[in-house]
Design a protein around this nucleic acid. Structure first.
Length: 325
DNA sequence: CAGTAGGA
DNA sequence: TCCTACTGG
């Protein structure tokens, strides 16, 4: 499950914020999920939910996370997922099962009075509800941050926008943007410290393989859309793909099989994406309206978001964030 | 997802 | 080198 194996293969280097600028097509799901699972953390109090139990950690995440982009001269464009692919059914089922198991353990911990353990497991039960998506879009709109709706996978759309030059980078912690052909991916945009830059061309050059071969290597290790071949990790996958040329020759050679291999491969090569988007990179946020929305309408503790709003206001309202495109 | 520990 | 399992974020 997952394709963390790619870290061993990907060309990733730490960069300074000074070295990057321009438009980042942010995988909204990935970005929000990170705030949902880390912001909630070890707190068991009600800071991140309303009286009615509605999740608002996403609003806090946006208020706290946006300054990281704009303070560093990056214009975020949030790309939301469209429908899920049926190729991903297995993965979705696995995640649901994991979530349900975590929820059961959480309940058990709560019943035995272990609130620390219960709070810790809470993060694993998080998922992005419709409300979270709606309120995130609304807040982003008030802050004049561009939003793009992907027809399918958000990461595929990010990669596409990066490829055609409408974005200078994809922004995601996952490796899928590179498998979808995204040239440059910025990582660690949510956490402290320097971001990481993942470079498709350099990755290919490092191993002397083609983009198509990279996808084949990933598929042998396992991706979100297919289980890998047992006994094959990143090293072996790289070796055998180079030896045999491509995925199907490797599978033939080993008498192995990957269900839907053609479809999965084709999905990476040319996923559903859209040209139907337009955005202005000059951001002029209505911070007062955003503040009212978050604090008044959603009863978020002002202390959680005020600093973020102030930073956004300071950075943008006088001049706007003019990038030089 | 990242890191790691233990086993094949 | 891989796999599984688990923790921490």
């Amino acid at each position: 499950m997952g394709n963390a194996d790619l870290r061993d293969i990907a060309h990733i280097e730490e960069v300074a914020f000074d070295d990057v600028s321009g438009v980042v097509a942010v995988d909204a799901h990935n970005w929000l999920y990170r705030y949902l699972t880390t912001t909630v953390k070890f707190t068991s109090d009600h800071r991140y939910t309303t009286e009615a139990g509605e999740e608002v950690a996403n609003l806090i995440g946006i208020a706290q996370g946006l300054p990281k982009f704009i303070d560093n001269g990056l214009t975020p464009v949030f790309v939301f997922d469209g429908g899920v692919t049926d190729l991903k059914d297995d993965e979705v089922a696995k995640r649901r099962a994991a979530r349900e198991q975590a929820e059961e353990r959480r309940k058990a911990a709560e019943e035995r009075g272990d609130s620390a353990e219960a709070a810790r497991l809470e993060a694993r039960t998080q998922r992005l509800t419709d409300t979270i998506h709606e309120t995130s879009r609304k807040l982003l709109r008030l802050l004049d941050v561009p939003v793009v709706e992907a027809p399918a996978e958000g990461e595929a759309q990010c990669a596409y926008m990066n490829r055609v030059g409408d974005a200078d980078y994809s922004g995601s912690e996952d490796y899928d943007t590179m498998l979808f052909g995204g040239p440059l991916t910025l990582r660690q945009l949510t956490s402290k410290g320097n971001p990481e830059l993942m470079d498709l061309e350099k990755t290919l050059a490092d191993h002397d393989i083609t983009y198509e071969q990279l996808v084949d290597v990933a598929m042998l290790c396992g991706t979100d859309f297919n289980d890998g071949v047992r006994g094959i990790g990143p090293k072996t996958a790289l070796n055998v793909v180079k030896e045999h040329g491509d995925l199907f020759s490797v599978l033939d050679d080993r008498g192995a099989e990957i269900p839907n291999a053609e479809r999965v491969r084709e999905f990476f090569h040319s996923p559903p994406v859209t040209d139907d988007y337009a955005f202005d990179t000059t951001i002029t946020p209505d911070v007062d309206a955003a503040r009212a929305y978050v604090v008044d309408e959603w009863e978020v503790d002002p202390d959680e978001v005020e600093r973020g709003f102030e930073r956004i206001e300071a950075a943008l309202t006088q001049t706007g964030i003019d990038d030089w495109t």
